[in-house]
Nucleic acid binder design. Structure first.
Lengths: 353, 353
DNA sequence: CTGAAAGCGCTTACAG
DNA sequence: CTGAAAGCGCTTACAG
């Protein structure tokens, strides 16, 4: 129990005495506030010894410029918005961690904005969010990032943004590409290397770019080794556990079952597990399975699931860095892209003779 | 591809012409800006027809006061901080959704601040976060919420906060109590109702208040029906999957296995699944299992896991509401508490004869 | 119930 | 390289 000041006291003031302001720094170091301002903003137009003297004082008194005052004068806040639409929790949290990695000690903060891209007014909602908060920039996470109308709106109102997507769909300076295609290809190659040829595929919704990329990468890699899947071995599902169950039921019902299944994400792979376990089909002896995401679920399932890992945290970090970076080095980052790779666990083995 | 203004254009201005300011509203409606300010702040000192006239104009031009200007004058921002320490992704995301439910259309935004409560400087990190951003208030999520030093620091600097915890540990106006004890008791009663008597318990770390509450609730409910667990049937683990595996191995090794296990969270229950499946112990025929959290994992496991559901999103909503509520009705909310309850799935049945 | 003045802590022109 | 003036869009005393 604490017995300090009343929580609803009308005026909340800093701990002891007011915090130092730019005026204090200017007065104490004997320069004008404009010079202090120049130092805050890293202007080159300050003599080195002036800068050193003032910076020492700032450190000494623990001075940090007020983001609201700065934002008011700049007509832009020091807030980065993260806009996303309904993906899995672990993915979002990792993305947030990554963004915060980039924002740490930068003076910027992360404000989250989940939305529903199926609701009609959602783009307007994002616009209000951006304009009312005068956001410095926003990160767009799949699947919202795939919505060109959203990106167009942001460009219209002059809001800088970065898009995270499985494939380049905007100027390089605004894109972080995750190359899902490569990850899926690696999964295909692994199954081939184990000797599988009767392989099935459960895809995410075709309308999702990520699903399209993963499917294409998987099928291409198979084709490169001369294997073409019949239509009956490819089932489109909805990226959800339940849809994975339905797809697996269709795939595992007949007598001639595939010896391996690749699913567009781990959720659907868990659905395959359920159907297989219920039907007494042994994983991996009678059925090999590979997922995509390397979510926590992958290691919690038994046997643990081989899955394609995405470097979500790094992806989020880079997307945020691109937003707060100064122009000079942003070019270096603009080509940012991260390749997924396969994490091998216990859900695959060569097919039975 | 879009071909709009360059993303790095030095001056980002609103879409078309500047947005309206308080001066525009004052001029156009023929009152002083102070009167407009009174209306913005819901002051009763405004004649109803004046208010109506001005509000109509504000709606018409889509005027929204600038949070940075307001914040600068108020010496406090319109940002709510969410401070948390390393819990599971779904829990955090649900908490964020709940907070945003409360903040929607309130003019407040949510800024996230994960931290590591084991690192020495973390309280200082939160203090800087609060003071530099002049946060309106912060929500403390377990286990950070259990740290009295953190709460004391916030009280010291005059920052309003709400704490979410399994049991009251602060003034009612600052607490949202989740009553984990009740949920655990319900799990115990369910197992008893099925006829189990040889029951085991895998607890979270005793240092966690939630673990303590869940353990106490479970054991109390058992004791109320005359059942006392021997020490050997109670294993302390770490709330993680891996620790659940180890605990289950200890519990399921001997010949006289318990017929049911209750775990302090779903992660550890998944660990029990792994050990049971590997050992050929059939769930629920030979072993009933109940988890806690009702995480997505619960329904993805097979057979699906009976688990105690926490109303995380509502909890987050209430914690945020308490922060932005005006004093008058905060009393009504202060007693806020939410009871967990058992979600019955397929992981339990009566013990074998 | 309403308003004119001063101020919140910064930055942007404009000078020098 | 440095500075005095005006302004960003609001609110707080203070009057009336």
């Amino acid at each position: 129990m604490t017995s300090r000041s009343k929580p609803d006291a009308p005026s909340a003031r800093p701990a002891m005495g007011k915090a130092a302001t730019i005026n204090d720094i200017a007065r104490l170091s004997g320069v004008s506030k404009k010079t202090v301002s120049r130092i805050i903003n890293n202007s080159p137009l300050v003599r080195k010894d002036t800068r050193d003297k003032v910076e020492a004082l700032m450190r000494e008194v623990g001075y940090v410029p007020d983001p609201m005052a700065r934002g008011l004068a700049f007509r832009r806040s020091f807030l980065i918005g993260m806009v996303y639409d309904n993906p899995t929790a672990q993915y979002i949290v990792n993305m947030q961690y990554g963004a915060l990695d980039a924002l740490r000690d930068s003076g910027f903060e992360l404000v989250v904005h989940p939305c529903d891209s199926r609701s009609p007014g959602y783009i307007d909602g994002v616009r209000r969010f951006v304009q009312q908060q005068k956001l410095h920039g926003v990160m767009l996470i799949p699947r919202a990032s795939e919505d060109q109308a959203l990106a167009d709106m942001l460009a219209d109102i002059g809001c800088r943004y970065t898009r995270i997507a499985s494939v380049a769909m905007d100027e390089p300076a605004r894109m972080v590409v995750t190359h899902d295609r490569n990850g899926a290809a690696e999964a295909a190659e692994y199954l081939l290397s184990l000797g599988h040829t009767d392989i099935a595929l459960i895809t995410g919704p075709n309308a999702y770019r990520s699903a399209h990329e993963r499917t294409a990468g998987f099928l291409e890699a198979l084709a490169a080794r001369g294997i073409e899947l019949p239509k009956s071995r490819i089932v489109e599902a909805g990226y959800t556990f339940e849809s994975g169950v339905l797809a697996a039921e269709a795939l595992l019902a007949g007598k001639r079952r595939p010896t391996a299944i690749f699913t567009g994400n781990d959720e659907m792979a868990a659905g395959v597990y359920k159907v297989a376990l219920r039907a007494g089909i042994s994983i991996p002896r009678q059925l090999s399975i590979i997922g995509f995401d390397d979510s926590p679920l992958a290691s919690r399932l038994w046997p643990s699931l081989t899955s394609v890992r995405r470097h979500t945290r790094d992806t989020g970090r880079i997307a945020a860095e691109m937003l707060i970076q100064h122009q000079d080095n942003s070019a270096a980052l603009s080509a940012a892209s991260i390749r997924p790779h396969l994490i091998i666990r216990d859900s695959c083995q060569p097919p039975e003779a």
